[in-house]
Amino acid sequence: MTREVHAFVYSALPSRVIFGAGRRADVAAELARLGCARPLIVTTHDQRMLGEALAHPFRDATLFSDATMHTPWDVTQRALHETARARADCVVAIGGGSSIGLSKAIALQTDLPQIVLPTTYAGSEVTPIIGETRDGEKRTQRTPKVLPEVVIYDVELTLSLPLAMSVASGLNAIAHAVEALYAEDRNPITSMMAEDAIASLAKALPNIAHTSDSIDARRLAQYGAWLGGTCLGMVGMGLHHKICHVLGGTFDLPHAQTHAVMLAHVVAYNAAAAPHAMTSIARALHTKDAWSGLHDLAKSLGAPLSLEALGMPEAGIDHALELVMRNAYSNPRAPEARALRIMLERAWKGEPPATAD
């Protein structure tokens, strides 16, 4: 396939990426390369044992295992207090979006270097984006201050990721690639990466569902997630991410699962305004059209299909719509209140996506 190339801007991000099974053993060498010896190791309570294993070789390591979904400010304040108390000279995060988000929040306030070991397919590890929740509202910003210096992709760390979380996290990664394909500042490099990310994840996730401990499938999914996250870091996201940030921050819905529910609906909403993106998505999925292909993939994997199932109250749709319409992200189709309300209602009920208003 030959791509039509027009004028564009491409800005590479300066992260060091280490990819391969067993590469978590490189943490000590990477700390030494950064000139650090007193790491604050960040994880969630459920993944505390992973943090303890990382901390074991270091005499002056401190473990903080209270990372929380959507990076609430009160948790960040406690982590900052622990950072100062321990005189930490770097942050090492192991986990998914909660751990990585907290690591970024610490870096934003302290400028400490970060080493990140992802255990999910969230993609946040390769982006200069941080989302923080204060006063019940999640806000995001882009700043190079939060971009981790080193990312270590060790596929073995994803083997214990439960199937339901693997599926939701993988669909979240696909969402990064999907929105990169119609981003206002897209370029040929990110578009190639995005399509490859969708194709890799769409192939890997059914194999993981069939054989959850398959190293080959997990490696392909991690590769796809890296590509999708890299796209997320280099170009702007659109309506899908705006909606998911609103729903997650306002109703405390799980991040990856919210992406899994909303993705096909937003793609259907944008379909007529982004035909080239729809062609790329459908080609990557080997389906007739993008939105039904994404919906069918999610359904076949047993992913959640309704906001109701995630715990969102039906009465919250109007409030969500109000927040989505406020300070809208760049998007190929302008936000239209009536169409968006219909879309949110369909997503709440778990109905298939529809392109008609």
Rank of each mutant, 00 (worst) to 15 (best):
L163W: 00
T143Q: 11
G136C: 13
V150P: 09
L157D: 10
T140N: 01
A164G: 09
V150N: 06
V178L: 10
E137G: 01
E179Q: 12
K138E: 00
E137D: 14
I152D: 09
R134M: 14
M165H: 12
A175Y: 07
L161K: 00
R139K: 15
K138D: 05
I174E: 00
K138Y: 02
L157Q: 13
A173R: 04
A177H: 01
I174P: 10
A168V: 09
L163G: 02
N172R: 05
M165G: 02
L157Y: 13
I152F: 07
L159N: 10
L161A: 02
T158E: 02
V178T: 11
L147E: 03
S160A: 15
L171A: 05
A173S: 04
A175M: 06
L159M: 15
L159S: 11
G170E: 05
T140S: 01
A175F: 04
S169W: 01
T140Y: 00
V167E: 03
T143W: 10
A164T: 08
S160Y: 09
R139M: 14
A177I: 09
P148I: 06
V155Q: 13
N172M: 05
P162N: 04
G136Q: 09
L157S: 05
D135G: 11
T143E: 10
S166F: 00
A180C: 09
L171R: 01
S160D: 15
Y153G: 03
Y153N: 06
N172D: 02
P144L: 08
K145E: 15
P148M: 12
P162L: 08
A168E: 03
T143G: 07
Y153W: 02
L159G: 10
P162R: 09
V155C: 11
R139I: 14
H176S: 04
E149S: 15
L157A: 04
L163H: 08
N172V: 04
A173K: 06
A175L: 06
H176P: 04
L171I: 13
N172W: 03
L147W: 13
L163D: 06
T158M: 02
A180F: 12
S166K: 03
P162Q: 11
E156A: 08
E137H: 13
V151L: 08
L161W: 01
L159R: 14
E149H: 15
L171C: 04
A164I: 03
L171S: 07
V155R: 14
L163I: 06
A168L: 09
H176W: 06
R139A: 14
T158S: 03
R139P: 05
Y153T: 00
N172K: 07
E149M: 13
N172C: 04
Y153Q: 03
R139Y: 11
P148L: 12
P162Y: 05
D154F: 06
E149L: 13
P162H: 04
Q141C: 14
Q141T: 15
L157K: 10
D135Q: 15
A164Q: 15
K145S: 06
S160N: 14
Y153P: 06
V167M: 08
P144M: 12
G136A: 07
